[in-house]
Design a protein around this nucleic acid. Structure first.
Length: 898
RNA sequence: GGUCGAUUAGCUCAGUUGGUUUAGAGCGUUGCAUUGACAUUGCAGAGGUCACUGGUUCGAGCCCAGUAUCGACCA
């Protein structure tokens, strides 16, 4: 006989290698119905974390279920190039080697970057294999590989031709560390302490009249071009239309009155610096103010600053404060909490800055994308996520998308400049040709054209993912088969970043790639369903993140509990959309996260339970004897339960209630199959009839198939143990069992029998009677009890075996020395070899009678209510009548016991 | 400040269009059980005014309004 405990490690590596060797994960278009998932491409710099495990477990469950359903299942994996993050890593590595980015040419840098990617990139994909992910690895894509690079360039040119791209000077979020523009979504706002400085500005034409402003950024004073107050503010009304003198700069600037100013914040007066504040910039446009830019791209002050030129903005702030103190213009310094924006990637404080950028017009795209979900073309799970989606995409919130990034690692913008002319084309040659057509007199050569130095935002690659991974921009053959994809599984935190933009791209390009007829027939959406996972949080509800160090090591968890165990642990507590609080405890001494988890351990135990169930079955000897009545009854019941479970699992998975489906299977396999069925058929002599053996194997086999999507390794292992299997026969590619009609009556009857067994066990526990002492059970003779014991073959024998009873008889008498309990509405007596404390028992029974009488009162009141009887559906009224009858009968039986 | 969501057992959470006797699960907890598939086990128990107030309804954990607390996203 095999070892007593299940060892996940060997089993998992064995079967993963086997599946790979058999190429089961690979998909090619054929005549079957496709089922497609594209992976949310993890960052190429990434390592597996809890979020990935949650997300990819769900995808693997869906894809394995589809495979078992006989569909052509295709799960496309890949990574994205993560412009900023990767470039930062490469720059850092080069620096360690003594190489500065500024010493390299663009091409040289790219060579280093690709080398880095080859060496370190995509570790995460290997780690996904340890989780059991059945991705089609032959289809692994990367957003910077040549074909996908080309797609991005084509899309840029396409959008430019349509007039959806423009270049403009805009207030943007500037990351001075990475020296690039970020989109709003890449800026993280948090509350931080800052100083608010009160600085006086002399009113022009006066000797001693000042307006005191409050600012957190005194270093930008030289860039002030106005002072603003609220029009209704009595304190400042007399100054409307006049001017003040900027301290240090000694320039006159106008006083403007605008209700943007909050009267109760600071002093009610604001300095306006259009070059360095988003809101000030808006005011500047409104009043036609001058724009003075005093920052260099790296965050140091330029010559417009007058003082401290070349100094970093933070140091300069300190120096300006000193200077203002000296001149007497600084009156007060106050601390306050305010929201500070920092770069998601570099953590540098974001500088609002005017820069020349490429933008994508979003109004039409956003309206289309919003409609795609509101019209039901795309369904969100959970549906409530549409609220967040709507708030992102509604007209008043949508902003044009700045798509340039001042980096090298990415698709270089295919825009070529000559003086004031811009030529956008897929290649430099085409751009030159276009330039020559437009400016024939200039005799242009390649050297006259300057290509844009910037690359495109990474999301500008990944928004094409559902189409680009099938090489949609090369030819439409594969796209025609796999598009639209079925399910997208992702976190709600990138609902706008990525989900919305993929929907935009789908509606913008799919018809161009696939033709009008295709779009009409199958739709333009990139996917039909979006399943939003929650965020994985720690005990303190903080999002698990690398920087906080509050996440357990995913690989350690896999090592400790096995992939099946971890998958179980993740899924058991993961209702769609709801955040999951992962139970990884924190070591009080070190403050470090332990790589432990009760949830995963439960999964590991479940594997062991299944493993041992098989050991038990294999330990039975098969014989020719006819099956006994208990076995026949238990078999009928299990068959009904199994059919019910298959149907329920189908239903729950269809509704994306994955967590519930797993709970159902856990309870069925552990509770119904192991605890009740196997105990019922367990033969005293170790010999099992062949018929029972065959049925048990067949049922167990079906259980392994329906559990397979959730826990692929243990199920594959046990499935192979159950029978001799031929070449190419594997659980992963078997067929999902069909749920046939089943006998619901047997389930009800059996559950009454189970209740009787539970009652006898309870009485044994209470009276401290050993489980091994066989007791006598008498049940009051009635129509119901006759039907239960008389008409159900094997019922009596089942009670004797599972309840450890020597006698089970119907009776009209009240046996002595017996403890009574209820079976349905009938009295039952368990005979004990001891004297019963009648008074104590009577007290208990009377308490139960009182409780039931309370309930009866409630129902009587309900039934006495004419409006209830008149308005409620007949079935509901009938049910209430049945309750009343049942309870009354019970009370009667209980009274008779006292 | 705006928007969205949450509040159910000690903890973490389910509870699918309002109606199924006593509102469920896992963990934790209490008691009992030890060589027999599995102590990674088995059996049983205790534990809840479904945040609060009001409304709609024959009927509310579920729908509506308000209050409180918490959270998230946006500004």
């Amino acid at each position: 006989m095999s070892a007593k405990t299940y060892s996940a490690k060997d089993v998992e590596s064995k079967w993963y290698a086997h599946w790979m060797e058999k190429n089961y994960f690979h998909s090619e278009p054929d005549e079957r119905e496709p089922y497609t998932i594209i992976i949310p491409p993890p960052n190429v710099t990434g390592v597996l974390h809890m979020g990935h495990m949650l997300n990819n477990t769900i995808q693997d469950i869906l894809i394995r279920k589809a495979r078992l359903d006989g569909k052509n299942a295709c799960w496309v994996p890949g990574t994205d190039h993560a412009s900023i993050a990767t470039e930062a890593k490469v720059v850092k590595k080069l620096r360690e080697q003594g190489i500065k980015k500024s010493d390299l040419s663009r091409d040289e840098f790219m060579t280093h970057a690709f080398a880095w990617k080859e060496e370190y990139g995509g570790i995460i994909l290997k780690q996904l294999q340890e989780l059991g992910a059945s991705c089609d690895w032959e289809r692994t894509r990367f957003t910077m590989e040549p074909e996908l690079y080309k797609a991005v360039i084509k899309v840029f040119v396409n959008l430019h031709k349509k007039g959806k791209l423009y270049r403009g000077l805009r207030m943007t979020n500037w990351d001075p560390a990475a020296q690039t523009v970020l989109s709003n979504e890449e800026v993280i706002h948090t509350e931080e302490n800052k100083n608010l400085y009160h600085v006086r500005y002399k009113v022009a034409g006066t000797e001693d009249e000042y307006i005191v402003i409050a600012t957190s950024r005194p270093e930008t004073i030289p860039a002030d071009t106005a002072l603003a107050v609220h029009p209704d503010d009595e304190r400042y009304k007399k100054y409307h239309g006049r001017k003040v003198i900027v301290p240090i700069a000694n320039r006159e600037i106008p006083i403007i009155a605008d209700d943007y100013v909050a009267m109760d914040f600071g002093t009610g007066a604001l300095k306006i610096t259009p070059a360095h504040d988003m809101n000030d910039n808006a005011l500047g446009e409104k009043y036609g103010l001058e724009v003075i830019d005093l920052l260099n791209p790296d965050g140091t002050l330029n010559e417009n600053a007058i003082e401290f030129v070349g100094m970093d903005r933070d140091e300069a702030r300190v120096e300006f404060v000193k200077l203002l103190k000296k001149t007497g213009d600084l009156l007060e310094t106050k601390q306050y909490r305010t929201s500070v924006g920092r770069s998601e990637r570099t953590n540098a404080v974001i500088e609002p800055r005017l820069t020349m950028q490429w933008f994508l017009k979003m109004d039409e795209l956003a309206a289309t994308a919003l409609n795609a979900v509101e019209s039901g073309d795309i369904t969100f799970h959970p549906a409530s996520m549409i609220n967040m989606y709507r708030s992102w995409l509604k007209e008043e919130n949508v902003r044009d998308w700045p798509i340039s990034r001042q980096l090298w690692w990415g698709q270089r913008i295919p825009a070529y400049y000559y003086k004031d002319e811009i030529f956008v084309a897929e290649t430099a040659e085409e751009a030159l040709a276009e330039a020559r057509r437009k400016l024939p007199a200039e005799n242009l050569t390649m050297d006259d054209l300057q290509q844009d130095e910037d690359v495109l935002d990474t999301w500008f690659s990944s928004w094409l993912w559902p189409m680009s991974v099938f090489d949609g921009w090369k030819d439409s053959k594969e796209l025609e088969y796999y598009y639209p994809t079925n399910d997208l599984v992702t976190g709600w935190d990138i609902i706008f970043f990525w989900v919305a933009r993929m929907i935009m791209a789908g509606y913008e390009f799919s018809e161009e790639l696939l033709g009008e007829a295709f779009a009409k027939e199958k739709g333009k959406m990139p996917f039909r369903n979006v399943y939003f996972t929650g965020m994985v949080r720690d005990e303190k509800r903080r999002k698990m993140s690398k920087s906080l160090g509050n996440s357990p090591d995913a690989l350690e968890l896999l090592k400790n509990y096995g992939a099946d165990g971890v998958r179980f642990g993740m899924m058991r507590s993961a209702a769609a959309g709801n955040d999951i609080v992962f139970d990884a405890p924190i070591d009080q001494k070190t403050g470090k996260v332990l790589n432990e988890s009760e949830l995963c351990n439960q999964g590991k135990k479940f594997c062991n339970k299944i493993f041992n169930a098989n050991r038990l079955i294999q330990s039975f000897e098969q014989s020719d004897k006819a099956p006994d009545p208990v076995t026949i009854l238990a078999g009928k019941w299990l068959d009904a339960k199994l059919n019910h479970t298959v149907a329920e699992t189908d239903r729950l998975l269809g509704e994306y209630r994955i967590s519930e489906a797993l709970s159902l299977l856990y309870n069925f396999i552990w509770g119904d199959f192991c605890s009740w069925y196997l105990e019922a058929i367990k033969p005293a002599d170790g010999k099992l009839s062949k018929e029972t053996y065959d049925f048990t194997i067949s049922a167990f086999e079906r259980m392994m198939i329906i559990l397979h999507p959730f826990m692929p390794f243990i199920t594959e292992e046990v499935w192979h143990e159950l029978r001799e299997r031929g070449e190419g026969e594997d659980c992963i590619v078997s067929r999902w069992p069909e749920a046939s009609a089943y006998d619901a009556e047997i389930v009800k009857t059996f559950s009454v029998l189970q209740d009787i067994v539970s009652s006898t066990r309870d009485i044994r526990n209470q009276r401290k009677v050993s489980h091994r002492d066989a007791l006598q059970l008498f049940i009051q003779r009635s129509d119901a009890s006759e039907a239960l014991l008389g008409a159900t073959a094997g019922a009596k024998e089942f009670l004797m075996k599972s309840g450890v009873l020597s006698t089970v008889e119907l009776t009209g008498d009240t046996p002595a020395n017996a403890l009574p309990f209820l079976v349905g509405n009938d009295k039952a007596y368990l005979v004990l070899n001891e004297t019963i404390d009648r008074a104590a028992e009577a007290e208990k029974i009377n308490a139960e009678i009182a409780r039931l009488e309370g309930q009866v009162k409630g129902v009587e009141k309900k039934l006495a209510n004419e409006r209830f009887v008149a308005n409620a559906p007949e079935a509901v009224v009938a049910l209430e009548r049945k309750k009343l009858a049942d309870w009354t009968a019970k009370i009667e039986s209980l009274r008779a016991m006292v």
